[in-house]
Amino acid sequence: MIDVINLKKTYGKLDVLKGITTSIKQGEKIAIIGPSGSGKSTFLRCLNLMEEPTSGSIIFGGQDITDRKVDINVHRRQMGMVFQHFNLFNNKTVLENIMLAPVYLGLRDLRGLKWRNRFIQLRNLFRREKQPLHPIQKSKAQIKTEARETALRLLKRIGLEDKANVYPSTLSGGQKQRIAIVRALAMNPKVMLFDEPTSALDPEMVGEVLDLIKQLADEGMTMVIVTHEMGFAREVATRVLFMNEGNILEDDAPERIFTNPKHPRTQEFLSKVL
């Protein structure tokens, strides 16, 4: 699903990623662990080009998305991202947070389609063989109500439907993060990227967020998670990548990495955190 080929990222003289090659297959749940400064987050943020790689390729949906000619926004819609600090839009209610992107993009696509139809109609006036118009499946109102229904359904799923019309500043960290997750889900992404989703949470709120992520995993969502929650990584991940100093040192099934790590650096790291 995502193929990463020789990905490098440097900030000035600092090599953060030193040539990473790996591939992420449909349905895989990949946990990325490693000491801080090892490039885990940078690697994750390169996957949807939140950081622009210095060199290398990322193939997603058959296209190299590091190519400047590719419209990255189209691909980002299919890659949900969840941040350490939630990043809910402070000026929008919970419902507006979830609906903003689907409604805006839906309406824009609709406008584009209508314009293209107008051109076809215009050109059809001069053509003997009339070209068919693009079918318009949803009206403006339908797009909005559908987005609303999706948002409310997702909120119900996480038990926060009563918070639909409040602003993020009134919510707890755990609630914010769960809403950030369903905001990403509202776009129907093919893969979810989690950047230390529980690191900024109070300990008692970590559970509710991890539970939600685990549910998604059980439903078959492809996901990449940068995490410090080793227990969670071990339980949910199908593959664990251990990163150190910009390289993937170990890439294996969780039971093998956690019980029998091959690399001495992995052993050292795990002995400290477990």
């Binding site: 949807n48 926004n73 980002r76 991202m81 941040f83 600090h85 990043n87 992107a101 905001r183 776009m187």
Partner: peptide, 21 residues
């Protein structure tokens, strides 16, 4: 800056995120 990042990560472009968020 996280506000801009969140908008961009959802596939909204720079201009729209700037204007709406």
């Amino acid at each position: 800056p996280g506000q801009m990042e969140a908008g961009r990560a959802l596939g909204l472009n720079y201009r729209v995120t700037m204007l709406k968020v």
